[in-house]
Design a protein around this nucleic acid. Sequence first.
DNA 1: AGACACTAAGACGCTTTGCGTCTCAGTGTC
DNA 2: GACACTGAGACGCAAAGCGTCTTAGTGTCT
Lengths: 195, 195
Amino acid sequence: MTPVTRDVETRVLDAAKLCTAKWGIAKVTIDDIAGEAGVSRATLYRMFPGGKDVMFDALRVRELEDFFTRVGTHVDGHDDLESLLIRIVGVATRELRDDQHLSLMLASEPGDTLSQLTVEGLPRIMRVATVFLVPMVDHYLPRRESVQLVELLARLVISYFLAPSEHVDFADADSAREFLRTFVLPAFHASLTRS
Amino acid sequence: MTPVTRDVETRVLDAAKLCTAKWGIAKVTIDDIAGEAGVSRATLYRMFPGGKDVMFDALRVRELEDFFTRVGTHVDGHDDLESLLIRIVGVATRELRDDQHLSLMLASEPGDTLSQLTVEGLPRIMRVATVFLVPMVDHYLPRRESVQLVELLARLVISYFLAPSEHVDFADADSAREFLRTFVLPAFHASLTRS
DNA sequence: AGACACTAAGACGCTTTGCGTCTCAGTGTC
DNA sequence: GACACTGAGACGCAAAGCGTCTTAGTGTCT
């Protein structure tokens, strides 16, 4: 894909995001998105062979990459695993809470949005989370355990975001520390390569 | 139609208004409206034989009646034609400007909305305006001239609302008075039955 | 209990819209 | 000229939407 086409793809995905926010997944059409992006439908299908579903998957991947990029930007410079994890769950939780597009989607299309955060979307979330977070975590743990830990954290952050708890708030460092010390870190203590 | 059914019709028209604001005329479906109103599609068709178009016409008539009722509420107690007309054009212009649903429709569906304020909608607007305003105007003018005057005013108010002028502002009493004295009242001076 | 009015749910047949694919003419770059 | 890319529009098919209708259920009245 040439640089020019990369720009067009960005424009199309931006348009897809905008139109989905406006119309929702159910009513948005390829025509809406093509028009908003300023490309023809044929161009859109050339770009995303397989059509609508493929394009939405690409948008979801891009959104995830943006999300984890933002998380990664805020979790540099930690000296130990615990601090790193506290920071990760905190930033991730705050990013989820601040995501207006996500809030809008959860309000207007709860079914599909929940599915993308749970059942259907989890494999993708795991793939992207692994790419972004494992390289940080594996300073402290072997690769295999790092992957497992990232998966566990992703699931917990999503769950506590979707159904907030009266007892745990990952956005609060003390609460997160207590939770991690109780439920997560002991399982990985024996695998620590560095503190 | 029974009182209970009148309530249901109101509910359906309210739903139609809400869903049209949300989806626009192009994408809104009978299913959306029926669901929002809490009735079945069959009930909706029974209520509005001829379907979607008939229902939207009914909504437009209701909106016009509401509009002119509000105008009428604010123009009582005038001793002469000029004052009455100044008040009418002023209130009407302000009501149009304050109408958020109309603003939303003009922004999101300019084509259809304009058409309903001009070409396609004008006969209906004239009918309703005549019903509401002519009884006020014909204190001062014979019936025939009253009807003609109301039509002229309606057209002028709409035009100046849709394409505001640098020289005339009907919401401003002095501006309206000057305009009416210059362009409207002389045409009806000879027909005055009362001052 | 029976008569009647009204309703929701769902089926039906038809029309319209949307989808994915494709062709062709036009444009820009080398 | 060769090539890559694009928009516009046509095509065939699927899906959604429309208007109509039937049936079973509910409520009210006598």
